[in-house]
Amino acid sequence: MSSLPDLSPGTDADALLARARLTFDIEAAAVLGLKDRVGPSFVEAVRRILNVRGRVVVMGMGKSGHVGRKIAATLASTGSPAMFVHPAEASHGDLGMIKTVDLVLAISNSGESDELAAILPVVKRQGVPLIAITGGLDSMLARHADVVLDSGVEKEACPLNLAPTASTTAQMALGDALAVALLDARGFGAEDFARSHPGGALGRKLLTHVSDLMRSGDHVPRVSPGATLSELMREMSSKGLGATAVVDADGRAIGIFTDGDLRRLVETGADLRELTAGDVMHKGPRTMRADALGVEAAELMEQYRITSILVTDAAGLLIGAISINDLMRAKVI
């Protein structure tokens, strides 16, 4: 069995924990310090992004670039079309990605990035609006920007005050604040979020309908009220739902019989040979419409402690069935 290496001088456990806690304090202070500095410029930034006809083009070098990629992804997933363009690549052809209908969101702690300096004059000549997130309020980036968001921090969490730590945390928080403010201003709701996250859990819950998952046609077990119990059991067994619908002559669902009902019936000692589906069915079964959400079916199953639900149309005709296993396979639950 492997063991942890001995701590060498300078890596005392208490010192390591103290450094971690100090890092949290410094970065928390950096984020909280932004609260008093958001004002008219933040509102103007939100207004400009709301009005942009194209995309928000996020740019940044080094660690600011990594933050920029995350901000672009967050904006895009919350209703503000966005992409990240690397400033160094922009000066070698990628600048063609930026159109006059776009808006540039440039991120730099110092505001003096050479790569940004090389392309910002071109961006401005194209008439593309520029929003800056920077701690350098008198910097090259700030001078070019139409709107400046102050992300300055008193110090980095790095003990050398060199590695971008608190400053990148502040940039990330400002980007999140922009995304959330824009989300709210657009009236972007859970269903909108689901449409941009169809593969996620929320997407599956809000976009998957009963019609997407239900069994239909010959895959739906059904018998008439006059069917013998033997016929009923064969239908249940062949269709593998663990239940069968009982339908009238017009195809309306008038009852249901499940595996659990069969076990309970056997325990009573009744003469099963004399019974029909109409004798043993549960009348007035729980049903759903095909356009209901899969998650609604799951909630109904949980509420009534059942494992399958019949699906009917507006006239009450049986058109399908859905089980808890169907919902689990689709990862709705």
Rank of each mutant, 00 (worst) to 15 (best):
F84Q: 00
E89V: 01
A90W: 00
A90H: 00
A90F: 00
A90M: 02
S91D: 06
S91P: 01
H92C: 01
H92E: 02
G93S: 04
G96T: 04
G96K: 02
G96L: 03
M97S: 02
I98D: 02
T100E: 14
T100A: 13
V101Y: 03
A106D: 02
S108M: 04
N109V: 03
S110R: 06
G111Y: 04
E112K: 07
L116V: 03
A118W: 00
A118F: 02
A118S: 11
I119F: 01
I119M: 09
V122L: 15
K124E: 11
R125T: 12
Q126R: 15
Q126N: 06
G127S: 05
L130H: 04
I133A: 00
T134W: 03
G135D: 05
G135R: 05
L137H: 03
S139R: 03
S139C: 04
L141V: 05
A145V: 07
A145L: 09
L149F: 07
L149N: 03
S151V: 03
G152I: 01
V153S: 08
K155T: 15
E156I: 12
E156C: 12
A157Q: 08
C158H: 10
C158L: 12
C158R: 10
P159L: 09
L160H: 15
N161R: 11
N161E: 10
A163Y: 10
A163N: 11
A163W: 11
P164N: 11
T165L: 10
A166V: 12
A170M: 13
Q171A: 15
L174R: 06
G175Q: 11
D176C: 08
D176L: 12
L178V: 13
A179M: 12
A179Q: 09
A179Y: 09
V180Y: 12
L183A: 14
L183W: 10
A185C: 09
G187I: 07
G189Y: 03
G189L: 11
E191M: 10
D192Q: 14
R195M: 15
P198Q: 07
A201S: 15
A201D: 12
L202K: 09
G203T: 08
K205A: 15
L206K: 09
L207T: 06
L207K: 10
H209C: 07
H209R: 15
S211V: 12
D212I: 08
D212E: 08
D212H: 15
